[in-house]
Amino acid sequence: MSHVQAILIDDSRAMRLILRRIVGQIGFDAVEAEDGQAAIDLLNSMEKPPELALIDWNMPNMNGLEFVTAVRKEPKYREMTLVMVTTESEQSQIVRALAAGAHEYVIKPFTAGAMIEKLALLGLVPQGASS
């Protein structure tokens, strides 16, 4: 099985699809999980963790902040870039997510261009791959 570069964690299938299209533009294959717990289970089953996780905040079972906190405790996920993608846009919430270990933060609604710019900031966009 080929290496998967992104995990998309959102309880909305529509949002996962939008994210899948966007990371596809920078050549990333993706797997999907509908909440934080499902994402952790999925990650544990993978041979090599993906480079990127795009994470919704408000989800049933395990929310995005809990997921980030849990993943940051695991050395094997140290290289994974964590990006919150959420409607939570109070300053204090962004600070909390960054403090928990998220690398970047994208507020919904976002355009495809804005998301790719954020991924470029994180060094995840190969030269010439952005639109």
Binding site: A102, Y105, F110, T111, A114
Partner: peptide, 10 residues
Amino acid sequence: QVEINRGLPA
């Protein structure tokens, strides 16, 4: 919000 999303690190 949309303007803020464009390329500004969190």
